[in-house]
């Protein structure tokens, strides 16, 4: 009964994985039958590729905005949801609505809604400001981070909410009796006990940051001035437009290694934090 799974995994998982690693050391334009073994050349080239560093920088910008913002907002929503009984599932489902939107669809919506002459700016115009959400190189990546926060807010809130509900109320009661202030309780009890939720959300958020593609592809096309180029966009263009399969592959491996390193760091830091508190 497991044979289909094993066969499938060999064909669509193991084989591609190995093939991908092999061609990362080759120069190959997909069309021609000749491949040339170039050793580590592709990887060295990546380190000298300005677009790699730009994508890296953009990913970092995205992360710096997306990770804290989504975590703070969703934790807040979860705390609020945890306080109510009536309508709780109505609100949690309401917040989850954004999660089920399709990437292409909400990219179209936000691009139009936040465009230079879009509805948001025409409202802001009434108080005398317009914000170049997607057209300023400084702001474009931040705006993309905002809309991804919009998408995942409800999803992360639910994970936090599940974490909050697994904290036994007796712990709170005994802390209250011991005279701890609200803030102290939050800082000393809630946050540490939510550690598993934090870990999982952080890992999701980091992985997601390295996989951003649809939004910049649909909204900005990587611009303005390459300010929304991401790793995924680079891999896509290198491989499927420029047909540098070898280079694309080594790019993919590099990105996988970087994202893995980030996840690893996140895990280690959080685990340390846990022991500390």
């Amino acid at each position: 009964m497991v044979i289909p799974y094993i066969l499938f995994t060999i064909i669509f998982w193991v084989y591609p994985l190995i093939w991908g690693i092999l061609i990362a050391f080759k120069k190959w334009n997909i069309i021609s039958p000749v491949t040339e073994f170039v050793g580590l050349d592709n990887f060295i080239k990546i380190l000298h590729d300005p677009l790699f560093w730009i994508s890296f920088k953009n990913t970092l910008i995205f992360m710096v905005v997306f990770v804290p913002l989504s975590i703070i907002c969703s934790l807040m929503v979860a705390l609020l949801l945890n306080r109510i009984k009536l309508l709780r599932s109505f609100f949690s489902l309401g917040y989850l609505m954004s999660y089920v939107s399709a990437g292409v669809a909400y990219s179209i919506v936000f691009r139009l809604l936040f465009s230079g002459d879009g509805l948001i700016n025409s409202w802001l115009g009434k108080v005398g400001i317009t914000i170049p959400w997607f057209s300023s190189p400084k702001l474009a990546m931040v705006s993309i981070a905002f809309i991804v926060v919009w998408k995942f807010l409800g999803y992360y809130s639910l994970i936090f909410l599940a974490g909050l509900q697994s904290i036994p109320s007796t712990i709170y009661e005994s802390a209250e009796i011991a005279g701890a202030s609200k803030w102290m309780i939050f800082r000393r009890i809630t946050v540490p006990l939510l550690n598993p939720s934090f870990t999982i959300i952080l890992i999701f958020a980091v992985i997601l940051s390295f996989n951003i593609f649809t939004e910049p592809y649909m909204i900005t096309g990587g611009g303005p001035l390459d300010s929304t180029q991401t790793f995924m966009m680079q891999i896509y263009y290198q491989t499927f437009t420029a047909l540098h399969a070898g280079y694309g592959s080594s790019f993919a491996i590099t990105v996988a290694i970087i994202s893995f390193t980030f996840v690893f760091i996140v895990k280690k830091t959080i685990e340390k934090d846990m022991i500390y508190s």
Binding site: G20, F240, V255, A256
Partner: peptide
């Protein structure tokens, strides 16, 4: 196989895009 399935979930999709396309 059980462990392998857990192991599989660690791998980011980006690694498979190109070779699967070639496949």
């Amino acid at each position: 196989l059980k462990n392998f399935i857990l192991f599989q979930m660690l791998f980011p999709i980006v690694l498979f895009l190109i070779p699967r396309f070639l496949l």
